[in-house]
Nucleic acid binder design. Sequence first.
DNA 1: ATAGATACTTGATGCAATCAAGCATCATCG
DNA 2: CGATGATGCTTGATTGCATCAAGTATCTAT
Lengths: 143, 143
Amino acid sequence: MAVPSGPVTASTDAERAMFQFVDAYDRAYETAATKHGLSVAQACVLGRLADPRGMRELADELGCDASNVTQIIARLEGRALVQRRTHPSDRRSRQIVRTPDGDALYAGFEESFAFARAAIANLSAEEQDRLTTLLRKALGTTD
Amino acid sequence: MAVPSGPVTASTDAERAMFQFVDAYDRAYETAATKHGLSVAQACVLGRLADPRGMRELADELGCDASNVTQIIARLEGRALVQRRTHPSDRRSRQIVRTPDGDALYAGFEESFAFARAAIANLSAEEQDRLTTLLRKALGTTD
DNA sequence: ATAGATACTTGATGCAATCAAGCATCATCG
DNA sequence: CGATGATGCTTGATTGCATCAAGTATCTAT
């Protein structure tokens, strides 16, 4: 289990609530991944492969080194969840494609990752809208 | 950089907003930690040492194996950010104490981890309250 | 045609996380 | 008391993530 990332000394109620929310989210994600035999990184990569993607593209999206992606994809490929094809017009590049097994496994994972759905289910439609608005506004100058 | 944990195929605006918020939070935490030469796990452990704590206690709070804590503390101790004392009344147990250096470093880290503060600063007092309420309500049945 | 950029891989290293085993200490109960 | 079991922590081994430095193959552009 990844360690919870948050200041324990959160000074305001709002900070505490944010931390608890983020922590719960992260834990739920990891739990769902583990349940399907995936690491967090693997689940995350699989999730980005709804459409074929290149290694470079993945690395950029994930904000990590390309060699990291190489490793993760290698493991997924070893389990036949993913397949590497060479790009039709650029032979340096690989197209990573989720296999049907990968599709199925990932669907199961998302099904298990009920956190966001459950959180939303606790709110009325109006509350959902307000939360969305507030989260966006809170993010405003922090990106 | 840790990979962003979230479904890319978030189906609703609310889900997307949650994911983006969590992702931004996590990234900000990691960035702040890195800036002070800490890993996420190290920052997290340091943060729990405002008061002395035992290894077992830490492991329980973090939801991980005790041997994991042993490693992390060993590294922090190697940098003199933390000190191990044997518990006065139970000689099996260690009391982990942050050194003044550790206090200072962690204070710097929290100062850098401006995410929550900045997010809050984007909201009026009333909006903060509403966000807090909504986050708690959303968490309601999901813990 | 060559020089440089780009896409990816390989190898090496450090850290986090987990498991299995082990040691020391404590706590309990006969 | 003394044996038994539980508890707190460490060690050693293994796996995976992440990053860096180097290398190969391919593309691009002059």
